[in-house]
Amino acid sequence: MKRRSFLKMSCCLGAGLALSGLGLTLAPVAAYADDMKKADALRTAVQSTTVCCYCSVGCGLICSVDKASGKIFNIEGDPEHPVNEGALCAKGAGLYQVSAANEHRLMKVLYRKPGSDKWEEKDWNFAISRIAELMKKERDKSFIVNNEKGQMVNRVQTMSLMGSSNVLSEECWATTQFARGLGFTYIDHQARV
């Protein structure tokens, strides 16, 4: 076998370097220019830490955002995180596909009229006003101040709420307030199932 020439590039390979502040230089090699773009971009990216949105191990990840476009272009495990130490499973490693880069992400309020066979795009004003109207109507109609025994119960049982263990704790707490403030008793979510 004929031995081929080597790509000659200066290379500094330190194990365990933090993701930011690498400050390495590369000799430009035409054959490789394209393939180095993403690694180069990591050096100038705005990076922030997040936590995985699947199981409850709570693996840490680093999101890299391109300064110019404001978009996430890479998500990988956080090597500093004491639990996962950079590791991720198939779902965590693919978290990029949960970002706005996924064409299937919902971006608009969708509304479906009774009996309609399609979603229509709406704005938040419509949604908030209409939902509030429906909720108030149902609450006013079905609110129970006293139960059959005459005990004060201040509840509504014709509306119910489910979810979610896939939102942040502060949102969970606000959701609890929302449901109990309106008088819901049918409140549940994934924790039970």
């Binding site: 390979l13 690498l22 393939d35 180095m36 690694a39 990988e76 495990g77 950079g86």
Partner: peptide, 20 residues
């Protein structure tokens, strides 16, 4: 590519980093 681009930036190959 053995993630040559990552190695050159001092990073582990993507598969190695992700492996628990």
């Amino acid at each position: 590519t053995m993630c040559i681009d990552r190695m050159r930036s001092g990073l582990k190959p993507a598969c190695v980093l992700s492996c628990p």
